[in-house]
Amino acid sequence: MTTASLSLVCPAGTPAALDAAVEAGADAVYCGFADATNARNFPGLNFSPVEMRAAVARTHRAGRSLYIAINTFPRAGEEAIWHRAVDSAAEAGADAVILADLGLLAYAQATHPSLRLHLSVQAAASTPEAIRYLAQTFGVQRVVLPRVLTLAEVTELTAAVAPVETEVFAFGGMCVMAEGRCQLSSYVTGQSPNTHGVCSPAGAVQFRREPGGDVTARLGDVTIDRHPAGAPAGYPTLCKGRFRANATTGYLFEEPTSLNAAEHIPGLIRAGVRALKIEGRQRGRAYVARVVGEFRRAIDAAVTGGFTVPDLASEMEGGRATAGAYDRRWR
């Protein structure tokens, strides 16, 4: 499928979404097991070990790759759950596992030496020193870079860490905190994306329509937003909440917005980035089909000519997009 050196890595939360991603032109698909070992541990989502084996077989038949995200940090005393996930990934025939925890990287390297290791964005490795250390110590072959780097920094880092490959996020949810370190969800709900695999767990989320028509969003005991009916919405996370501070009501951390770095595809190809990642394992197969299809066309056009930035406004959180740190001009 690849016509460019840039591989398109796409999300799948269900077998149907995986088929949609492959059909739409993904070079690789990433999935997770239905437990706390992956950072999209939402109810009704993800794959059983049996489903994962079938998914690997289907993906390989189509000539594509399948990566398994085991990208949360094992809870003390419960490491066996994470070790079992790595074993299941190896048994399923995954092309790579995406890991964040150093202990888990060591376990994977020692137990399954032929298993390809990718470093998750959750590990927040953003310097040549950190990446070289992880490559030399654990054999990490690809690093998913945090969403805090400018295009110039990505270019510089990619050259500095070669032959370790770099992968960058191109579309989807924006995590504005230090990846893998955020404690906001944990602070309010007792569960975090880092160890439970879920930011703003569904059991703690409530939406309520108020008598005047406004909609209130609550996380645990905290009201995180209230807006008129019909106003664009975002995920019910604390970082996208609207609060009153110093008599002003506004988004304290970040506005509900999706990342869309499509305009930078030619630049990322020139930078030598190996893979472009679409976020959204929690999204439906319609999202996967649409976004993957548009990015497939954009990447191919960046190589063959006629490149245009795809319009994906309807898929975006809050109905708005940002190129994020790629365009950052401040330091």
Partner: peptide, 9 residues
Amino acid sequence: DGDSLFFSR
């Protein structure tokens, strides 16, 4: 996609 329908209310 459920999230897209939710984002646009």
